[in-house]
Write a protein that binds this DNA or RNA. Sequence first.
DNA 1: CAGCTAAGTTAGTGGCCAATTACTAACTAC
DNA 2: GTAGTTAGTAATTGGCCACTAACTTAGCTG
Lengths: 189, 189
Amino acid sequence: MVRMSADERRESVIRAATVEFARGGYYGTSTEAIARRVGVSQPYLFRLFPGKKAIFLAAAARCLENTRKVFEAAVEGLEGEEALHAMAEAYTRLIAEDPDNLQMQMQTYVAVGAAEAAGDHEFGEMVRAGWLEIWDTARLALGADDEETATFMGHGMLINSLAAMGFRSDHRVWQGLFISARVKREAGA
Amino acid sequence: MVRMSADERRESVIRAATVEFARGGYYGTSTEAIARRVGVSQPYLFRLFPGKKAIFLAAAARCLENTRKVFEAAVEGLEGEEALHAMAEAYTRLIAEDPDNLQMQMQTYVAVGAAEAAGDHEFGEMVRAGWLEIWDTARLALGADDEETATFMGHGMLINSLAAMGFRSDHRVWQGLFISARVKREAGA
DNA sequence: CAGCTAAGTTAGTGGCCAATTACTAACTAC
DNA sequence: GTAGTTAGTAATTGGCCACTAACTTAGCTG
């Protein structure tokens, strides 16, 4: 048994929860599974977080934050066409290195629907705010108008969807994407 | 009590299931909820379908089929810019008239992840095949290459994501999408 | 080392939910 | 009208899961 500070444990929980929630979504993931991945007993999660919802929320927020940071780091000092390529490459690397982050993004989007339907608007607000930050980061770096930004973000959403559906990286649907060449290279084909 | 043929009931179940699954996803939706919406007892669902999975599968397949048909109907007799505008308009109408269809699409995509992780590749195959049909329908009607098709489908995925996240239709993130359709129409000359 | 605090665990509980079993009511053809 | 079929329900069960309560162990500090 490795003892850890509560804050450190919470970090581990968020990472483990991201992996599990990415696959099963909110309802399809048991706290048991998260605890097992962390390496602690299941009830201990409820010391670290007030409930399952709070764990999902923390993981979702972290996921959006990660994506934003990846973009921000990529475009530092760049603009226009260069920024676009930098963000595209950074997102490509994110697919390869952390596919769970992508899947968790999708799970986050989808979870908003259930939350809103259940009368919880706070979660949706958080997600929309986080997503807007990413949108604005891209828009600013590209120096783009709404249409160009929409096209860029659309490509990102398409990538998320294709990855979620499990299209292999050598499938023809990946061909037209701005990152197709790099995806294939990194997939080691 | 209104009696109905088993086939008619199955249709009702698929429609009700689409609404419920769209909100809660697979695990977040109880067969009880579906049955209540249909107006039959919960155990009767298991006469009409072998299990919950089969209901979800039927709803997912129907959802993909609906979307494909909307596109096919929209582009009938058109091609190129005209086809693009027609599909964009048709999809926009689909958002307004049948938001559940959109949400169900997202739920379908994310459900593939869980299915594949659980060793079930059949569901993923069905989804990928259905989605490819839509892709090819668009590609053919547009007379487009991979890149243009990706951009078009990317806009569609962006719309799905924005709708799922609950962005109101007057929010600025929608601007680029609507403008896009108008500009492209004007640039068609 | 004694005593406090913070990090953990084991053992339960109540609620929900998919699926089964056994039954009942309504059409249809002769 | 009655025999057979098809549409439907009521009652139940076994399993999972979020969360609680009560208890234990590790580390720090004077």
